[in-house]
Nucleic acid binder design. Structure first.
Lengths: 156, 156
DNA sequence: AGGTTCCGTTTGTGACACTAACGTTAGTTA
DNA sequence: TAACTAACGTTAGTGTCACAAACGGAACCT
């Protein structure tokens, strides 16, 4: 629920620009997702970290940064938030005292499960106008875009 | 050219999430586009405004806001920048003294032409991994996504 | 004349990607 | 063993962007 009800037509020039469409679509999608997650007292990084921990087991913060794409500087705050909620535990690594080992707690796993559901519903809302095969098509195309450009930046 | 060369695999869970793919792709695309435009002393809003002016002729700032999706608060700065470069002229509307009428100058039109070229090249770079038909598919899917969700927010 | 709505503008906020620097620790090489 | 290099976690800060809130002025409507 935001504002101006009257939608004026934007120029065809702009409407067809794929890059514009892309950031516009991402913006709308992000908005829905962030709202939905906020409503569940979470942010998308929370999910990313928890999902990574489930797949990879306990890892260092730097490793989390690499796998999720969160900047190394920002991992700190995310872990703080998760640890503050008891979803994750931060402990110094005895084997390498530079590292912190991040471990998911039982509550963290439960949380991940519920976020899985929340996110699935949100995905469904975002992709509402597309059929199943079309959704696959879209993710396929996007994946190829991302993979192609990820090489130059290093983001996974 | 950013940083970390070693790309660690991100969890399959995350890689397949359409919403994540969408914002990731948009991020990479935006980065390329912004860099390219900055290199030409422009920003994407400059292009959006100039393109709108060419299609719609002289209009008020509020109208520009509606057509481009720029927030009404932010139009001011964009017009300042464009006017400062002599690409656009801001004049009070004699018919309605609340309004400013924004008119594209001759230089503005030239600028729009060159930005057209810059942007076409950037589009091509972003969509590099996709074939022609695939690009159409992508813009088609994205358009449907955007149109579907634009109704609820009001953005064009 | 009064109330409502639109206009342009200023100021501010919160989120996010990103940079820079520091102290600590590990590995590597001299 | 000593010195260099590189990775780690952390703090602080930058710039950008979408967005909100409030204002004075001007138009419209009754």
């Amino acid at each position: 629920m935001t504002h101006h009800g009257e939608v004026t037509r934007s120029p065809a020039r702009l409407r067809r620009l794929p890059t514009r469409l892309l950031s516009l679509a991402a913006m709308l999608s992000d908005r829905l997702v962030n709202e939905g997650l906020a409503h569940a007292d979470a942010r998308k990084w929370h999910y990313a970290v928890l999902a990574t921990l489930e797949e990879a087991g306990p890892v260092s913060q730097a490793e989390l940064s690499r796998r999720t794409g969160i900047y190394r500087s920002d991992v700190v705050a995310v872990i703080n938030e998760l640890a503050g909620r008891g979803l994750v535990e931060r402990a110094p690594d005895p084997a390498d005292r530079r590292r912190n080992v991040i471990t998911m707690t039982r509550q963290g796993l439960d949380r991940l499960r519920s976020l899985d559901a929340v996110l699935a519903a949100l995905e469904d809302e975002v992709l509402a106008p597309l059929t199943g095969p079309e959704r696959d098509q879209l993710t396929g195309l996007l994946t190829r875009l991302v993979d192609h450009h990820a090489g130059s930046t290093g983001c996974a």
